[in-house]
Write a protein that binds this DNA or RNA. Structure first.
Length: 575
DNA sequence: GCCGTTTTCGGCCCGACTGTTTTCAGTCG
């Protein structure tokens, strides 16, 4: 039985949620959460680690008991403790606890006194005014519950980082325009450049906290003010996005920024480090007893616990604290390191612009090269190119290249990987191209082993250069297809193939974890936009965000290389 | 349930805000 790491992590998280409602020891609950996190962040599958005889209890946060439980899951697909607990508590209680204002304690109370076990029961009880009579509840809590249950059925999705940008940047400008504001920055997962964002956390230093609070809640997009105190306020925008504002004194700006950037797991790791050397870190600074030692800058905060500055994208507790202590943090890739885009479309298939227009737009952005990769014939809906049309596109690009100086249009294709692993265009034509970007666009539901084999078989093709959007996921739209990513990456290394980080904000595929996995396994990646119009070329920054979150350095990314070197690397290292 | 440069037992990150209290519990980030 091959159990995925995420499945094990989910079982532990779920168990933690139920135990919390049950009122179990909070530190035991935390232990399950921490274990879930550790497992999710592993570069290799636990199943394969066990097969190799690894000692799981050597992993951070996993002791003998949890190692045994993991083994149970891998062997049986079940966790008996979870089965036991969920037979005592209705499973939906965990969902109820996610409703704002409700937490484990209140859910337990509602269940014990009113027998509420799902959203429907909750709504009914709130409507009939039963909830306000319970000890610890009141009319306001009841109203909030009703307001939440009303809209619950409508939305419950995280937004993409791109959508978040569209809301975030105008609010930030608005806040910066207020009188007395010195610094303003968006912290949280937005600053860590996560692929999706749940809410925005904004941090401001200013001379008059009250003024900025009033200014904030008066923002034109604010629909409701959820809370507003002296230093903290929360609002909901009309779009449903929650925005939190915190005002901090200037001398605490660094500490607050560090604190509110998170992640929570990273902060716990840093704080634990502080405790070990007799310090305390909170959002106001680093303290020894009552004495405040630092806090103006993040760098200061980190250096007091013996760490170098850690880039926000790394702050996930995926090993960055340990790497910092050993001075082995990566020198992260930046947008400026990239010299070109290796996957864009023209109007020959489903793009909107001519090859020349796309090339000019790329040149404007300072690139050295751009690869035109239109769809192949199978994708009829996108006017995929057959052999004849691709041959004439090759000639067109050769002609166009004479008109550019210091810039090269590369000849490519986004060729379909067919169900049997063959490519959708004949080999002699593919060999005339500078590169091939190979992709799956159908048969998403093949069993895991079949889908994996399909891709590896395609990689056997001598003309295969890059695997496009390797998992096929579309954020909030389509789940990734079933794949054994470890096998795919092994196969890519063996054959000298690359994997793409598709920078379309709804794809971001490879994602951050897969980037880290590629780094650990020695797989080279390219970051490409899959642009269908000239402005899409700017999506590159989202791909860079995922790459940075996955610890990638310039050396790990092919399109940081000058053209000559790139051409050499695209040629397969083994044949 | 984990873990050890105080510890194999007794700790485990910490403060703001709200709504409910009449000094605080629960939630949240």
């Amino acid at each position: 039985m091959s159990v995925h790491n995420t499945e094990i992590a989910e079982m532990f998280s779920r168990l933690a949620e139920l135990l919390e409602i049950q009122g179990a020891n909070p530190f035991r609950i935390r232990a399950y959460r921490k274990a879930a996190q550790t497992i999710e962040g592993l570069p290799h599958s636990v199943t394969s680690m066990l097969a190799e005889g690894s000692d799981l209890s050597a992993l951070p946060g996993i002791g003998e008991d949890l190692a045994t439980k993991i083994q149970e899951i891998v062997e049986t697909g079940h966790l008996s403790l979870l089965d036991q607990v969920s037979s005592r508590l209705p499973g939906q209680l965990a969902e109820l606890a996610k409703i704002p204002t409700l937490g484990p304690k209140r859910v337990k109370m509602l269940y014990d006194t009113l027998g509420i076990q799902d959203l429907k029961g909750l709504t009914q009880a709130a409507r009939s005014g039963k909830i306000r009579k319970l000890h610890g509840f009141g009319p306001k809590t009841e109203e909030k519950i009703l307001a939440e249950t009303d809209k619950r059925s409508v939305t419950e999705q995280r937004i993409t980082i791109r959508t978040a940008e569209e809301f975030a940047e105008p609010i930030l400008d608005y806040l910066k325009s207020a009188k007395g504001v010195k610094d303003a920055m968006i912290a949280g997962s937005y600053r860590r450049r996560k692929d999706t964002i749940g809410d925005l956390d904004i941090l401001v230093t200013c001379t008059q906290a009250k003024t900025i609070m009033d200014h904030f809640v008066a923002y034109e997009d604010v629909e409701t003010v959820v809370s507003k105190g002296r230093t903290r306020a929360t609002v909901m925008l009309r779009s449903g996005l929650q925005v939190d504002l915190r005002v901090v004194p200037e001398e605490s700006y660094g500490a607050a920024l560090q604190y509110f950037t998170g992640s929570k797991a990273h902060n716990i790791a840093v704080r634990s480090l502080a405790i070990k050397i007799g310090l305390k870190i909170n959002e106001y600074g680093v303290f020894r007893g009552e004495t405040r030692l630092a806090g103006r800058t993040e760098k200061e905060v980190y250096s007091h616990v013996g760490l170098p500055y850690i880039e926000p994208e790394l702050r996930e507790n995926w090993g960055e604290v340990e790497a910092g202590l050993h001075q082995t943090l990566p020198r992260l890739l930046t947008l400026n390191d990239l010299r070109g885009d290796l996957h864009v479309h023209s109007k020959a298939s489903d793009g909107r612009f001519s090859i020349k227009d796309m090339a000019l737009a790329a040149q404007e952005r300072g690139y050295d090269y751009l690869a035109i990769c239109d769809h192949s014939q199978r994708v009829t809906i996108a006017h995929g190119l057959d052999a004849k049309r691709l041959a004439s596109q090759i000639e067109e690009i050769d002609r166009l290249n004479h008109t550019f100086k210091g810039f090269t249009i590369l000849k490519g294709t986004e060729v379909d990987i067919l169900e049997d692993g063959s490519l959708d265009l004949c080999e002699d034509l593919l060999q005339r191209l500078d590169l091939t970007v190979c992709a799956i666009h159908d048969k998403f539901n093949l069993p895991r082993a079949k889908q994996t084999e399909r891709i590896i078989r395609a990689m056997d093709h001598p003309a295969f250069s890059i695997l496009a959007h390797p998992t096929g996921r579309m954020i909030n739209e389509r789940e990734p297809y079933e794949l054994d990513m470890e096998k795919i990456m092994d196969a890519a290394v063996e054959r000298g193939c690359c994997l793409e980080v598709n920078a379309q904000p709804v794809r971001l595929d490879l994602n951050d974890r897969h980037c880290k996995m590629a780094k650990d396994m020695g797989v080279k990646v390219v970051i490409s936009t899959d642009a269908h119009r000239t402005t899409d070329l700017d999506f590159l920054r989202f791909g860079v965000g995922q790459a940075r979150r996955g610890w990638l350095e310039p050396e790990d990314v092919l399109n940081t290389r000058p053209l000559k070197e790139l051409r050499k690397l695209l040629r397969r290292t083994s044949s």
